Amino acid sequence: MTSRNLVRLFFSTLLLGGTATGIIGFFVRWDEFKPYFLNFQLIDIIMALFWLFGVGLIFSVLSQMGFAAYLTVHRFGLGIFKSLKLWNSVQVILILFVVFDLVYLRYTAFSKTGDSIVPYIALAIFVLASGLVVAYIKAKQTNKEAFIPAVFFMVVVTTLEWVPVLRVNEEGWVYLMLISLLICNAYQLLILHKLNEKSSLEKQQKSKLASPKIPKTKVNNPKQQKVKPSK
């Protein structure tokens, strides 16, 4: 990928993360911001929007760090296992393990006596379903081999990025960070191949412009040459 497209990916993901968090934050944390709208406190609404936008920038940076780390891990995985099928099998096992832990570990750590396990299962299913949808779109845009890696990234890597808030387990922050990360991760995953194609085209155009033009030499036609008569 060219440096220009890499910078474009960084800033577009940054802007997307800030904007998405700024909008979603008002819905997810409505109880906190509801008085601002009821009393039409415009200054407080704008300040809250800027604060949520800044938080979204942090979420976006975490998302991009996770994406860069996954691209590296994916290459290492292919190199270690020497087979795409075997590496995909390992990724499937890790996906199932993470989905199970999203239910079991959170339920054992934060549930109280009499609490239902259903909300914990529902959240894990939501993460898995989001990953499957994004992976399906990615596979349709590229090839079927991209499906499992896409699910792995959307489920496993998103969960790892999500850990700081999961440990606190504050409901508003849990959903706010999750949705923001899913949006940023899905965007990066779905636009990567387009930017790679664009970068390759730009490199080809530059190489054509940089290649020296070979001047055409005139080839003398022997039939047109005048033969001097011998004395």
Results as ranks from 00 to 15, higher is better:
residue 143 N to T: 12
residue 215 P to L: 06
residue 89 S to I: 02
residue 99 V to M: 14
residue 212 P to D: 05
residue 6 L to N: 06
residue 70 Y to D: 11
residue 45 I to Q: 12
residue 122 A to Q: 13
residue 104 Y to V: 03
residue 53 F to I: 12
residue 2 T to R: 09
residue 168 V to R: 12
residue 196 N to D: 12
residue 112 K to P: 00
residue 199 S to F: 00
residue 137 I to T: 13
residue 149 P to L: 05
residue 58 I to A: 13
residue 64 Q to H: 08
residue 55 V to R: 15
residue 200 S to M: 08
residue 183 I to S: 04
residue 68 A to N: 13
residue 189 L to S: 08
residue 10 F to G: 09
residue 89 S to D: 04
residue 124 A to S: 14
residue 76 F to T: 08
residue 149 P to C: 05
residue 102 L to Y: 00
residue 142 T to N: 10
residue 121 I to A: 14
residue 58 I to R: 11
residue 185 N to C: 04
residue 117 I to T: 07
residue 190 L to Q: 08
residue 3 S to E: 02
residue 153 F to P: 03
residue 211 S to W: 10
residue 218 K to L: 15
residue 220 N to L: 14
residue 88 N to M: 09
residue 191 I to P: 01
residue 214 I to E: 11
residue 205 Q to K: 14
residue 82 K to Y: 07
residue 24 I to P: 00
residue 197 E to C: 03
residue 22 G to P: 00
residue 206 K to H: 00
residue 115 D to Q: 06
residue 146 A to S: 15
residue 159 T to C: 09
residue 65 M to F: 12
residue 86 L to H: 09
residue 24 I to Y: 05
residue 13 T to C: 11
residue 175 Y to D: 01
residue 167 R to P: 00
residue 219 V to N: 13
residue 21 T to L: 06
residue 159 T to L: 05
residue 208 K to F: 08
residue 228 K to V: 02
residue 141 Q to W: 02
residue 230 S to P: 01
residue 55 V to S: 13
residue 24 I to S: 14
residue 220 N to S: 12
residue 61 V to H: 04
residue 46 I to C: 02
residue 1 M to S: 09
residue 64 Q to R: 11
residue 202 E to P: 01
residue 209 L to V: 12
residue 33 F to Q: 10
residue 140 K to T: 14
residue 190 L to T: 04
residue 57 L to C: 13
residue 20 A to D: 02
residue 63 S to T: 11
residue 201 L to S: 07
residue 19 T to F: 06
residue 207 S to I: 04
residue 64 Q to S: 04
residue 226 K to Y: 07
residue 119 P to I: 00
residue 199 S to G: 01
residue 95 I to S: 06
residue 116 S to F: 01
residue 181 L to Y: 04
residue 223 K to R: 13
residue 217 T to N: 12
residue 186 A to P: 07
residue 155 V to D: 11
residue 141 Q to V: 01
residue 67 F to S: 14
residue 45 I to Y: 03
residue 78 L to H: 05
residue 7 V to C: 02
residue 210 A to E: 14
residue 123 L to T: 10
residue 131 G to E: 11
residue 122 A to L: 12
residue 102 L to I: 03
residue 154 M to L: 14
residue 51 W to G: 10
residue 186 A to V: 04
residue 208 K to D: 03
residue 121 I to R: 04
residue 22 G to L: 06
residue 209 L to D: 14
residue 122 A to N: 07
residue 33 F to H: 15
residue 11 F to L: 12
residue 199 S to H: 01
residue 87 W to F: 14
residue 29 R to C: 04
residue 33 F to C: 05
residue 202 E to R: 12
residue 100 F to P: 00
residue 106 R to K: 15
residue 133 V to Y: 06
residue 170 E to M: 03
residue 209 L to N: 15
residue 125 I to S: 06
residue 107 Y to I: 05
residue 61 V to E: 08
residue 23 I to S: 12
residue 193 H to F: 01
residue 39 N to L: 08
residue 50 F to T: 11
residue 16 L to H: 09
residue 134 V to I: 14
residue 206 K to V: 02
residue 37 F to S: 10
residue 86 L to M: 09
residue 18 G to I: 02
residue 213 K to I: 15
